[in-house]
Write a protein that binds this DNA or RNA. Structure first.
Lengths: 187, 187
DNA sequence: ATACGCATGTAATCTGTTACATGATTGG
DNA sequence: CCAATCATGTAACAGATTACATGCGTAT
């Protein structure tokens, strides 16, 4: 129940078409709330029906034509209401941890290589976040909006820092496991 | 596509009934792959149909009667295959981060209180993990299975450490935001 | 004219959530 | 006998994923 609010947030920041939203989800919002273009189009339809957003006036109608939306006052209110309401953190669902637990009973074949690959992925993501931080949040600016957005980016950086650290630790442990030189075994 | 493998892992560790699995998901496996009893029963049915698990022999049939399952060789093979195959990390979906981004445009009302509540939740979870670590992983044991399971628990501990650290940082930032004494405002 | 990329959308399927229904067992 | 609890399950729905369909605009 958060996708509509992710979209409302994006549209309040800047009115956009479906594809533009998709691009922005790929770049920035999707770092903590991912969505595909199908989800976005479907949800835009719903939000329009519910009167929370509307098509920007001065438009072409047809299919294959760009169609931009803006947030209506009702949408802004709904977003404010949702933001203010308490919500429990959603339970974690992580495949790598599950695989390690499975590896404890069926063997570690293949897992070491993928740990290395994940480390690489997380290192890249971390580097990307740090670039964004340098570019968008140079020292000594502090509007309230900037601070909040910086805080969110900080979470991303800290989270990737956690993953890279843990993955390195995991790889070190793996190196000490019996028979983990080349990578495979099944008990 | 991981719930069946979570269940297979649990059943390889120890044959169980649906409700016993549900309990174990609440306690241990669910820390990184949560599931409700409905999901579990549905999936047990599928796994049995596919010939990956079977009912423990020596059974009563009827509804309301306990029904335990064990993993068949085909199930163990499928689990090993899945564990060894590379998988991309699933994209992050975090509501609190989304809310902060929304708060940057619609105001921070209510968010501060919930940050505090989340900090409390994550501190409790961290304490629970640490207790498990003390109880189940005293210094100086090192079977391969133990090491892998400890590694998974370590991820939980490090992750909760990240959250509590970040939430404290966020609360400190909030304290400096204009008008954030009592908690509410809308721009 | 056709092929490519942009843009919007439909459909089918799978996964997860919520609410409820039913039988068995046990303690009062 | 009754209520509570254990245990299994159904049904309906909501959310997410995957594959595909269609139309427009532009460059070759």
């Amino acid at each position: 129940m958060s996708l509509p609010h992710a979209i409302l947030t994006a549209l309040v920041e800047k009115p956009s078409s479906g594809l533009e939203l998709t691009r922005r989800f790929d770049r920035s919002i999707g770092y903590f709330w991912s969505a595909t273009h199908q989800q976005i189009y479907r949800e835009l339809g719903k939000l329009e029906t519910e009167g929370l957003i509307r098509e920007l006036p001065g438009r072409q109608p047809a299919r294959g034509q760009k169609k931009s939306y803006e947030v209506l006052p009702a949408g802004r209110e709904e977003l404010a209401r949702w933001t203010a309401a308490p919500q429990d953190p959603r339970p974690l669902r992580d495949t790598m941890l599950l695989r390690l637990r499975a590896a404890a009973v069926v063997g570690t074949a293949g897992v070491g290589d993928d740990l290395r690959r994940h480390l690489d992925l997380h290192e890249r993501q971390l580097a990307e976040y740090r670039e964004i931080e340098e570019r968008d949040f140079p020292p000594g600016r502090d509007g309230a909006e900037d601070r909040l957005r910086h805080l969110v980016l900080r979470a991303g950086i800290d989270l990737e820092t956690f993953w890279t650290g843990w993955l390195r630790h995991a790889l070190a442990e793996f190196a000490e496991l019996p028979g983990e030189g080349a990578g495979a075994q099944n008990r």
